[in-house]
Design a protein around this nucleic acid. Structure first.
Lengths: 257, 257
DNA sequence: GCTCGTTCCATACGAACGTTTGCATGATAA
DNA sequence: TTATCATGCAAACGTTCGTATGGAACGAGC
């Protein structure tokens, strides 16, 4: 058997098991058994178990990054300025398509990414950020050119959040990778939208994320809209919440500046 | 030492270690060493390692749920109908305050929740959903009464996404729990907003989430806004992307109905 | 047809894991 | 004082983990 074939089979098995059980809960014995190779194969081909995870991730992320950049360049080559929706679509489409691959690989990869992006470990974050660095920077700049009503740092944070949602929340919430039976049993609502195919999910995500990105700058919301929420709630609950700290109301005032 | 004191010390240690290292990567020996108790204490007081996690989570979630319900009831008792922002604030405020607790417990709990909400395992999802069931249902109903421009299932999914973001993305992206040094080094942008305190973060989240919730129903966006993004990108890239499937364009048409 | 480097495999090792056991300790009630 | 019970502790159990080793199988190049 060729070396590459073995490596690919190991990556396939690891991808599935890391997604299903998590990295720590997956043993090399389980990986090699699923891959149909010997236990020692992982250490031979990848050096260690720790080195297997970045290999799995970059095999997934590379084509997504490439396509994100292709779509962005297409937009930038056009004569008209891109809209927020266009930028969001160029960013999100490759991700949604990844989670929508035929067979069960899409859901699987979705779960893997939900795990990875939710992991607050420094090593994990570093690994992901290294892989998306280029695409990320290019989109940051592009959104900065379009969201002119926002100060730069707010653009930065909104895009960071958007990217994180696209990578981690999308597969869990929007697509078919969540344990819908569990949600149905416990929350008892009809998640019909999840079943209507890729384009419905894509459109739904575009609406959600574009809405968030387009929102006016923080602090620009009218006082009439925001003030009563806090004032009312605080007043009605003051006697109940004995544990609240004294500076609470002060900080509200500061924020409502 | 009283039994409760030991249990609390174990929960404290487990909370921190689960957040920092993850559940699987944390050994009972590490927990009991940090708690200053004997190794057997966990099994004595909680039955098993598996039972320790729900105990940790519900100790955190209980006061948050209670406060969410308090704030919602205050809004519902008012004579005027609540706004989207008011509802979002009532839902998000207890969560933001949780991640903002004095000392380092806030960031810690934030990391723990990022892990838990990102975990696609069925057991984990079931555990969380059971704990938030009541509050979740009440807010679902409340948002349904306010987002009148959306069909019920879209309200349902938008709130699901909002809740997931509030629980998992908020601590990672908006607050101080992300490894900012790593982001800075790799993405090289000034995340100044994260440093300006709780109220700035809260306001930022309200803007982001309210914007997403207020967005028009999916499909209601104008064709002039959305169509060119796809058409342009597809046309310019057709020759490059040989691997694209044939039904791609068809499905776009279907979605743009 | 032999050689050499790559790949594969069976096996072993030491460490770390969750759990259990048996007994010590200390407070409480009779 | 004695009996009882909840709690704490040290030690050990069997299992599983990641990694290392030494040789077998194989194919390309001379």
């Amino acid at each position: 058997m060729s070396a590459n074939e073995t490596k690919e089979r190991i990556l396939d098995a690891a991808e599935r098991l890391f997604a299903e059980e998590g990295f720590d809960a997956t043993s090399l014995r389980a990986v090699t058994a699923a891959a149909g190779t010997n236990l020692a194969a992982v250490n031979y081909h990848f050096g260690s178990k720790a080195a297997l995870l970045p290999a799995v991730v970059s095999r997934i992320l590379e084509p997504v990054n490439a396509r994100q950049l292709e779509l962005l360049e297409a937009l930038e080559a056009a004569e008209t300025t891109a809209s927020v929706e266009q930028l969001v679509e160029a960013f999100v489409l490759p991700i949604v398509d990844l989670f929508d691959e035929e067979g069960d690989r899409g859901p699987m990869v979705g779960r893997l990414f939900a795990r990875i992006m939710g992991d607050p470990g420094a090593d994990m974050q570093r690994m992901v950020l290294e892989q998306v660095q280029e695409s990320d920077g290019r989109y940051q700049a592009a959104f900065g050119r379009v969201l002119l009503h926002l100060p730069p740092e707010e653009v930065w944070w909104r895009f960071r959040t958007t990217a994180a949602i696209a990578g981690s929340m999308a597969p869990v919430v929007v697509s078919r990778h969540v344990h819908v039976e569990t949600m149905l049993a416990l929350l008892g609502a009809p998640p019909a939208m999840a079943g209507t195919g890729r384009d419905a999910r894509l459109g739904w995500m575009l609406t959600f994320l574009s809405g968030a990105l387009r929102a006016p700058a923080t602090g620009a919301a009218s006082r009439a809209e925001r003030q009563p929420a806090r004032a009312l709630a605080e007043a009605e609950l003051d006697e109940q919440r004995l544990d609240r700290r004294a500076d609470d109301r002060v900080s509200v005032e500061a924020f409502e500046r």
